[in-house]
């Protein structure tokens, strides 16, 4: 009994320490975003002045709009590509090139971003020389780059959900004479929709968060939010970045909570249908 209690204290200790480590920096950012002082480490009383400065900062506002535009487009492309890839890996067993396909889907999840960024930039430069496209680098090139690696993350989620999906429904629809495309569109895709929603959201956040790849493949016409933040952070610690981080956190929290709620709902439904 005593041994068991000690083990459970150890477990509690691991959780407390672990989560304190993960959340301490984030909590500090939020607290200091309300700091009246310009010095980030000195508490100068409660103030919302950095939020005011943030709203008036045109550099951040433009960059945020650019980032949003890219993230929406990239997430949508990634959703289409990733869902197709998820199907290919889950449903088609062994096809020619599956090993290469699997490698191309896995590698972007782990390959260092500097390599992804540099290689895509060199591709765009080469393509410009050979076929004249893209004429300039900016929103389009960053979108393509983000869609490429985000698609691999979407594929993981889509594939996992397809594994859980009950194929009896598809077979029933086919037996009743539905065409394959109709089955895909009206049975399978709605069935895996929670993975598609969370996949889109994950792709969206990955795009919004990326500094390295965007820095390589973007041109002077497009500065994303992480690029703008990086250029301020490089100069020194600025309180406005704390305010920006807090706003960001709020948005992400709402979005992730939404995705979590959707997944929990789906899980409940799944459990409810299991006899």
């Amino acid at each position: 009994m005593i041994a068991r209690r000690r083990v459970s204290m150890l477990r509690l200790g691991a959780l407390l320490f672990g989560f304190a480590f993960l959340y301490l920096p984030i909590a500090l950012l939020v607290v200091y975003s309300f700091n009246g002082s310009r010095l980030v480490t000195v508490w100068g009383g409660f103030s919302a002045r950095w939020y005011g400065a943030l709203v008036e900062n045109e550099k951040y506002r433009d960059a945020a709009l650019t980032s949003l535009e890219i993230a929406v487009m990239a997430a949508t492309i990634a959703l289409v590509l990733g869902t197709c890839a998820g199907f290919a890996m889950n449903r088609f067993g062994r096809f020619r090139g599956r090993l290469v396909f699997g490698f191309m889907l896995m590698a972007p999840l782990v390959v260092p971003e500097v390599i992804l960024g540099l290689s895509l930039l060199l591709l765009f430069v080469a393509a410009q020389n050979w076929i004249g496209w893209p004429a300039s680098r900016g929103i389009v090139t960053v979108t393509i780059a983000h869609a490429t690696f985000a698609a691999c993350f979407v594929a993981v989620l889509a594939r996992a959900q397809l594994t859980l999906f009950d194929r009896v429904l598809e077979e029933a629809a086919l037996d009743l004479g539905a065409r394959p495309l109709a089955v895909l569109w009206r049975i399978t895709l709605p069935g895996i929709s929670p993975a598609l929603v969370s996949g889109w959201l994950l792709a969206f956040t990955l795009s919004l968060d990326d500094l390295v790849v965007a820095s390589f493949v973007s041109g002077p016409s497009a500065t994303t939010l992480p690029m703008a933040v990086y250029s301020s952070v490089r100069i020194g610690v600025t309180p406005e970045v704390n305010a920006l981080a807090t706003v960001f956190l709020g948005i992400v929290f709402v979005m992730v909570a939404l995705a979590g709620w959707l997944m929990a709902r789906q899980e409940r439904r799944r459990l409810a249908t299991v006899p």
Partner: peptide, 14 residues
């Protein structure tokens, strides 16, 4: 899911 860049930057202040 939150900004990687900003989370790393937070450690500077610590």
């Amino acid at each position: 899911w939150t900004s990687f860049l900003i989370r790393v930057y937070a450690w500077i202040a610590i």
